[in-house]
Design a binder for these strands. Structure first.
Lengths: 376, 376
DNA sequence: TGCACTTTGGCAACAGCGTTGCTTAAGTGG
DNA sequence: CCACTTAAGCAACGCTGTTGCCAAAGTGCA
């Protein structure tokens, strides 16, 4: 009748509105919750009782969940804690090699591919030049070869391939739109093409969303933040409740074409006063302080509208002048809060990550759902 | 150990991170889901099989859930549908009088109180003048008397009182901040004071959030929209996934002090180029078209950032020139989408509601959680 | 009028979830 | 050595949604 009984988990896949929850879905939810705490604990591990305390479940329920996860090979016992006057707690750890995921970052002129284990640690890496003008089929083929080369050395089961790339796209269907400067990519079904070629699950997302997802996982947060990326363009990834907010058509995060100067200077998009145009113009003329001030105004707009907890900055331009941007944006946020009669509280930091950040986030597109972070 | 076993439902109340789900929580979730579909169906009713189809649960599970709800007096059978070649379906309806909630709207100079039944229908209404300068205790006392007067005529069980009022406040704790022009209200614990006086549950929220909640319930949507209110001030209520987005400190929706004109004209908040200042100045000099254009720019910023599905406009100024604002804002959204290379798709409409809208939304602060709309 | 068929919805048995009560394992401390 | 504490498993339990089956209540055709 309704297609339940599928082993992997979350039961029914109804379309509109909220859906009913059956016992399989409940099991999968609690299992993912425990796995996430195990992942967060890392090499230090975590005991059954701590898991019970953190989840709100009873110790016995946690014991049963752990027993299932051990049978599946996802969790293992790894020593004991010091006694506190009784039987010492058993340390539990995630088994990193229980599954791997590939993350693929397609940038304007380069391809970066990583393999990550369950903990998100990079265990393999490859880079190659990329020319989008070569056409969709050729690019898919060369990307597939890189993935195959990367996987040749690894033996663990593959969960799938995550792909991150710039520009607007349809995350749900994995279809591209408007790859800047290459009109032949319009409407290309990247997800389907790569899935057919590699015979595995493929998920496609914007590079900013991948970067934000990686940060959410790395921070272990279930709160909210914005990742603002300033490089060749200006974009953002939003995280609410620990999950990426993609919006109705998975187009959310269009931060750069926010209007902060009505009737201001023209932007490449054809509009006037876009924050991206103002910010990049300031950078181009060497006035990084002004770029930071403009970016801060946009960030203040965002924080005021959404009441997020944290702002993380990244991208090549930010990395070249980290202190200027952190101070400049932070000052605008503090000033804005002060004028609204609130105490300043939203921290601004540079996002860690480096050159592999986006590729790691792409891999998390497949890993994160295992730990209860909705796929969106 | 962990305080489960409480009858009302959702189990554990762990603080940080996602929490475990036990069978009580599951029962409560599915029950709320079914109740919401019954509410949406309204007087037309809905059958067990339709409920099963919509929730994804099996018909038998729905039958059991309905049996529980009938025992609780929340649902009743009400006739039969026409047969389609077999046994006709039994029509189920929500029992409106199974519970009532009071909604209280405290505006700058007037108080509006309503009683709503479970379906959200207003079954009682009162208005009174209000002078915030009289001091907190006096205002609480007079509000309480209005509520008592309203309830004297009603006999159904009371779920609680929802209060909606302007300005920033702490929704979680029900504490006010900066009631404009009345510094003595700073930090006043309205929720606690009114709960003690009326001996019932009290929930406090911003007026824009209440209005947005009412719209979400009335539309029956589990999608996303923004309610933008232009009256004596400019604010917004955001709805994602059918629930009000309040943000980390329940301060989200600060739309009016978004900067859309860097170094623009000064705003009352002390900053420059706030959309509220520009918009109200245009209204004041009679240039409603310009006000709509400015508002449209802010709405476009919001839609681009969040990728919501719908924009609803409300408030006194909008109601005076509905067509100008709907057309003006719509034009800006369409133009923005066109420039970004997307087909225009975000509809702009005037929010229905009238003078009771906010008070009804305040009542929904207590009703909506019964139907699975998170309390935030 | 009778019978085959369709559809609805309840009853009973079931598997599986987290919970409870109790027992065993494995430490500490006087 | 023994009392005590803490961790974790076993068994029984209550409850969930699910499955298989059957009665109820219609339609439609002979």
């Amino acid at each position: 009748m309704n297609g339940n009984g599928n082993g992997t988990g979350n039961g029914n896949g109804r379309a509109a509105g909220a859906t009913g929850v059956n016992l399989l879905a409940l099991r999968s939810h609690n299992g993912a919750l425990v796995l996430d705490l195990l992942r967060t604990a890392g090499a230090a591990g975590i005991s059954r009782l701590e898991l019970a305390d953190r989840t709100g479940l009873t110790p016995q329920a946690v014991s049963k969940i752990i027993a299932r996860l051990r049978v599946d090979g996802l969790v293992t016992e790894a020593g004991y804690r010091a006694s506190t006057g009784g039987k010492p707690r058993t340390v539990l750890r995630l088994v990193p090699d229980a599954g791997h995921a590939v993350g693929l970052h397609l940038d304007r002129d380069a391809l970066t591919a990583v393999v990550c284990d369950l903990t998100g640690t990079v265990v393999g890496e490859r880079r190659a030049p990329l020319y989008l003008g070569a056409g969709a089929e050729a690019v898919v083929e060369s990307a597939a070869r890189e993935v195959e080369g990367l996987l040749a050395e690894e033996g663990a089961p593959l969960l799938g391939v995550g792909v991150a790339l710039p520009g607007p796209l349809d995350h749900l269907h994995g279809v591209l739109h408007r790859v800047t400067g290459f009109p032949e990519w319009e409407g290309f079904p990247l997800r389907a093409a790569l899935a057919r070629r590699l015979r595995t699950s493929v998920v496609v997302d914007k590079d900013t969303n991948a970067a934000a997802l990686r940060l959410a996982v790395a921070l272990g947060t279930h709160g909210s933040f914005a990742y603002i990326h300033l490089g060749t363009g200006l974009g953002a990834g939003l995280v609410f409740g620990g999950a990426v907010h993609r919006g109705a058509r998975t187009r959310a995060g269009e931060f750069g074409h926010q209007i902060v100067q009505l009737d201001g200077p023209p932007c490449s998009c054809g509009n006037r006063g876009c924050i991206e145009a103002l910010c990049l113009a300031a950078v181009a003329r060497g006035d990084v302080g002004e770029a930071a001030r403009v970016l801060g105004a946009g960030a203040a707009n965002l924080v005021g509208l959404l009441d997020i907890e944290l702002v993380l900055l990244g991208g090549r331009t930010v990395e070249e002048h980290p202190d200027v941007f952190v101070r400049g944006v932070g000052a605008m946020l503090d000033e804005w809060a002060r004028l609204q009669g609130e105490e300043p509280y939203v921290p601004v930091r540079v996002a860690s990550g480096g050159s592999l950040g986006v590729a790691e986030g792409a891999a998390q597109l497949l890993l994160a759902p295992l730990f209860g972070r909705a796929d969106g």
